[in-house]
């Protein structure tokens, strides 16, 4: 196993949190993991991104420059990172917020209208958790129940009342199938 994950979106979308969950999922399985955030003024309203490595071998460079899993949550991040994905990479993107330009043919594309699904389920701000549910279904980094309990354990004390909302978002993302009904306008 050698996942080099890059997650990008705008500040407030839970980009860093999403990365933390993936790193923790690797840690519970005894893998080598690292999590490296972008930090600085770019996080206020602009793009935020973070690198996550989950690997069987020692992680030398924690900075993911050529991801084999790319998760994109807004338009500027698409433009910035789509070229960086390794050939053969799995590219997930929020098709509610992104109209892909110059789509690549050498990567596996996994569009999901994450923000739209979150909105439909009354959990508007949990597009990242919808994305996590979908991602886990496509790439079983960890068994589903274990992954979800890890997610709930990571919700801070002050946000415990959002556990149910997180479950709703997670299940909706997990159940999403691009070929049934909820097709997005950008599905390939």
């Amino acid at each position: 196993m050698d996942y080099q994950i890059l997650i990008a979106g705008f500040g407030g979308q839970g980009i860093l949190f999403t990365g933390k969950i993936l790193a923790k999922a690797g840690l519970t399985q005894g893998k080598n993991v690292s999590w490296l955030p972008s930090y600085g003024p770019e996080m206020r309203g602009g793009t935020a991104n973070c690198s996550v490595c989950v690997s069987d071998s020692e992680i030398s460079n924690p900075m993911v420059l050529q991801p084999n899993i790319l998760i994109v949550m807004n338009q500027p991040s698409w433009s910035k990172f789509i070229c960086a994905a390794q050939p053969g990479a799995d590219v997930f993107w929020d098709s509610t917020l992104i109209a892909p330009e110059g789509t690549r043919t050498d990567v596996s594309l996994h569009p999901i209208p994450a923000t739209g699904i979150a909105r439909q389920n009354g959990v508007e701000r949990l597009g990242n958790v919808v994305m996590l549910g979908y991602l886990l279904h496509q790439i079983p980094i960890l068994e589903k129940d274990a992954f979800f309990s890890l997610l709930t354990d990571s919700i801070s004390e002050t946000k415990r009342h959002l556990v149910q909302a997180n479950r709703t978002a997670f299940e909706a993302g997990y159940a999403y199938s691009p070929h049934e009904g909820q097709k997005s306008r950008h599905d390939a």
Partner: peptide, 10 residues
Amino acid sequence: DGMIGQMMEP
């Protein structure tokens, strides 16, 4: 440095 300070590892 900023990278070592900001990154998370086990």
